[in-house]
Write a protein that binds this DNA or RNA. Structure first.
Lengths: 341, 341
DNA sequence: ATGAAAGCGCTAACAT
DNA sequence: ATGTTAGCGCTTTCAT
């Protein structure tokens, strides 16, 4: 009792492979297969527990009916949240989703896109882990629809959807300044990814525009460890900050730990704001004001863009690079003190 | 300029498909392919940017060199954390990981396992979303190695690795009792999954063994919403609890919100403990004592079991069902008050 | 040391 | 209304 294939069914019903294939693919009507025959095939398929061998379909059709989703790290709630939303939306549209966690490693990301391409993937959504981008151009050359989210490159023809990182950072920095803060420290993540660079730019420009010196920028990854270490160092400075802008919630967590260890109160001793607006911000010892990214919108637009590109591979319609930036919003909580002038 | 296949390389080098294939698969030595020839093939492959078509390999070999990881929900940090650990461990061993988020839906889980099976997946790790288990038996019948983690079924021959849920709940309940608590409420998750049932049993038995009535059990899913709603209801009772045991960190978050809304302090007005030990527990307004699951151990053992099963498919060695339960530990923080007797 | 040829399971162009 | 056949890209047995 080997695996059931269409051949098994053909033998079983005394029909040809073609007819069986037609019935099973729903093209029966189109080829005027008799109702009788259809029933026979369907019944045999059910009885023999037939499931199509995707490798064969894939080889033949050069399509896999699945899309790849490549993320830097699932242990970061921001990414796992996006992953969850994107993946369910695609499944709802009949695509399988192959999710790959790169552990923030660029080689892993390159490998991931190659392995996806080798599987005749229908399309790829990627959140780039670093500066590497040639692998994305390669996908383009292979005519594999690809779009990037959250992070992106302006100098290659890959469409993207992301939060307007610059604006988010600029606005929240300016908000801190309006609250009377002048010594505002910025705890950054991976200094080589666009999202981080733009946020740092937003912070820097908001400071300068308001006639303030850029007080402090440090950090090297979007992790609690980085946030912790940098805050420890920051607090060694002769002049302590009155406010800290953490560029992600993971960084924030580390910063909070360091602040607690130093016995500093929020917002009494130091104000704190962050990026990403994770749900636990509402439950921290001091609820934390945050820049919220429109994650659901990002996911939905990404899906729309990718499915359009996939669909138009058949029609052959040309697409230009779409560059979509969505407005972030500030969610106000209680972590910011208004300083006396 | 079409896609490069071994045929392209064969034509290019004037060699046969066989020879090209041998070189590319590292069996060159075994077949005494001349060094000269090997170089030619390798060079052509590089120049033409050859990547093997996995669908073809898969069809031919009935192997995909990838494993499936099926989880209930990636937006739950406990699962996304496991997913991250398992997926990186497998990639390190040369397997691709196809990760599927089922949104806690049993149909989605069944569909996922079927779709994975249709891809000639080498093995599957699943965290079951509910009571459904026939799909796992089906995998077994198709000789696809499968093991479940975190949640499991004792009456089917699927191996599993999980935390000793019963013990975790029993111990922490008893700890609360020793601290003088008698009215302890239990906020449960999905009542139909083993992990939840066992935890509830642990709670219930700890109460009974210590001569206390089972005060309160309610809830229906491992979400903040459920935790919030149930806590709201719980606080309507004439007799309020002195302690709350949340069966997951997500439930805890909802409970905390409800407690805050009622103006209750932790641990002054009510003590709180939870399951899962997420990193943010250290940063809440009151750090929360928690049952920690040995997630890394679970992942590593799961990997060991699965790779063994995959390897022994070739050797044909028989495996019995492995049932592995790991001890949880209690991480003490500041959310539990010691009551006067 | 290298090649020819069969076949994995499926679809589709081309009969009839 | 149904069937024959070629071929997707690869591995492997069997020749030479």
């Amino acid at each position: 009792m080997e695996n059931t294939t269409i051949k098994t069914i053909a033998v079983h019903t005394g029909l040809s492979l073609t007819t069986v294939s037609r019935v099973l693919n729903g093209t029966a009507k189109q080829y005027r297969v008799s109702t009788r025959t259809q029933e026979k095939v369907l019944e045999a398929a059910r009885k023999l527990q037939y499931t199509p061998n995707q490798a064969a379909v894939n080889l033949r059709l050069k399509r896999s009916f699945s899309i790849g989703l490549v993320v830097p790290s699932l242990s970061n709630p921001f990414f796992s949240n996006i992953a969850s939303i994107v993946s369910s939306a695609f499944r709802a549209r009949g695509f399988s989703v192959i999710l790959i966690d790169c552990e923030e490693k660029e080689e892993a990301e390159v490998e991931a896109t190659q392995s996806l391409a080798a599987r005749n993937i229908d399309g790829i959504i990627v959140i780039p882990s670093g500066r590497t981008k040639t692998h994305l151009e390669l996908l383009l050359r292979k005519k594999i629809p690809v779009i990037s989210i959250d992070r992106y490159f302006d100098d290659i023809a890959v469409s993207y959807v992301a939060t307007h990182h610059y604006e988010g950072a600029y606005n929240i920095t300016e908000y801190l300044i309006r609250c009377g803060h002048q010594r505002i420290a910025c705890l950054q993540g991976n200094p080589f990814v666009v999202s981080n660079m733009l946020r740092v730019d937003g912070y820097t420009n908001a400071m300068r525009t308001n006639g303030l010196p850029v007080f402090y920028v440090a950090g090297n990854s979007f992790t609690a460890e980085s946030g912790y270490v940098e805050t420890k160092l920051l607090l060694q400075k002769a002049e302590r900050p009155t406010a800290i802008l953490a560029l992600s919630d993971t960084i924030l967590l580390g910063a909070l730990k360091a602040l607690a260890e130093e016995g500093l109160n929020i917002p009494g001793d130091v104000s704190v704001v962050t990026f990403d607006n994770s749900s636990y911000l509402d439950f921290l010892s001091c609820t934390v004001t945050s820049v919220a990214q429109p994650v659901t919108d990002i996911a939905n637009i990404a899906i729309k863009l990718l499915t359009d590109k996939i669909a138009s591979k058949t029609t052959g319609a040309k697409h230009q690079q779409e560059k979509i930036l969505l407005k972030p919003t500030i969610i106000h909580r209680r972590s910011v003190a208004v300083l006396p002038r």
